[in-house]
């Protein structure tokens, strides 16, 4: 079910708070005071009924938070992108502030705590950047980042993003449907899966040695998942190019799967016949399956997946099957969600 809500888009440039104002922390303190009140009165908890039908909501709630801190505040200074089309695909939910999205990251090549990537990822050189596309296809080749960033078909899509650690956010990503890009390389009938690989360089990523798993990071999708219109090859967020810690210059966003499937800083794409190995699955196969579809009913040994905490909220809300993107259900007809977790 794709519900497209036309703009009013929440981030107009007029709404972007200057960094000076943003740094005026009294505003945040005031906000915090409110959350303390919410804490006492219980007002901050998510309404379960609402969580079950977020797509029914059409209001653009971001205007509320824009009155205190604009969602995109802090993204200034990064190159702006020309967005041809905008789709709101998160049920009109409030955008998570850019500052949160860009300072709370899992990118183990730059440190294993959430705040480390934002501090360390500046060592990553994102230009020039070439992606090798090969394997089971008729026209293997290279993909330059500039071609993608300057594409006239760049789209903004507001998606919910759900981490397996039971936190989530709402992000306006900018990119191109992965299917459009993959089609250029003419995958053959043998291309049953697509394997992706993250850039790895010990000099640029010295903390990668402590990641706890072998690098480069690898991920994969079944070809029909990769070709699904929701799968976004992403170059930006909040109208500008991606910050390094969010996977610059090029990452996947697969909104119905746990975040680790949305591989960052991609340098290689390969069409393959067999299910490719994926990093977290290699490390802990019982915990992280190849499919990793968001599913509140499939228990996980570390985190209950029945609920999630939206960044900026205190209480948990209910997790939606496929993170609310139930239009992908037909991809998994007849598959046991526990066996193929």
């Amino acid at each position: 079910m794709l519900i497209r809500i036309p703009p009013p888009h929440p981030i107009r440039s007029s709404e972007i708070t200057p960094e000076r104002v943003h740094d005026d922390r009294r505003r945040l303190v005031a906000q915090l005071g409110l959350s303390a009140v919410a804490l006492v009165t219980g007002c901050g908890r998510s309404d379960d009924a609402q969580a079950e039908r977020p797509q029914a909501s059409t209001e653009i709630a971001a205007t509320d938070s824009a009155s205190t801190v604009a969602p995109a505040a802090g993204s200034e200074g990064r190159a702006a992108l020309n967005v041809a089309k905008r789709s709101e695909l998160a049920g009109g939910e409030t955008l998570t502030p850019f500052m949160d999205v860009s300072t709370y990251n899992n990118y183990y090549e730059f440190g294993t705590s959430k705040d480390q990537p934002a501090r360390n990822a500046h060592t990553l050189k994102t230009r020039p950047w070439m992606v090798t596309v090969d394997g089971e296809c008729e026209s293997p080749g290279q993909l330059g980042i500039e071609d993608l960033v300057n594409a006239s078909t760049l789209e903004e899509r507001v998606y919910r993003f759900r981490c397996v650690e039971a936190w989530s956010m709402v992000v306006p990503w900018v990119g191109i449907a992965l299917s459009d890009v993959l089609a250029r390389f003419k995958p053959t009938s043998k291309a049953k899966y697509v394997a992706f690989e993250t850039f790895y360089d010990r000099q640029q990523m010295p903390l990668g040695r402590w990641a706890g798993f072998e690098l480069p990071y690898v991920e994969g999708l079944r070809i029909d998942e990769a070709m699904h219109p929701l799968t976004l090859l992403t170059v930006g967020m909040y109208g500008r190019v991606l910050p390094n810690q969010n996977g610059a210059p090029l990452r996947l966003v697969v909104p119905w799967k746990y975040g680790y499937k949305s591989i960052k800083s991609i340098v290689r794409v390969r069409f393959v016949e067999k299910e490719p190995p994926t990093t977290w699955n290699i490390l802990q196969p019982e915990e992280y399956g190849f499919y990793s579809n968001v599913n509140p009913a499939v228990s996980h040994p570390r985190w209950s997946q029945s609920g999630e905490r939206r960044l900026g909220e205190l209480f948990k809300r209910k997790t939606l099957l496929y993170n609310g993107y139930t239009e992908v259900a037909s991809l998994y007809t007849g598959m046991d969600p526990v066996k193929f977790h």
Binding site: V29, L32, S35, A36, T103, Y104, K114, R309, L311, L314
Partner: peptide, 13 residues
């Protein structure tokens, strides 16, 4: 931290 909004993006965690 509470009075300086320094609990990070996920205060509960």
């Amino acid at each position: 931290r509470l009075t300086h909004a320094a609990l990070g993006p996920n205060p509960v965690e």
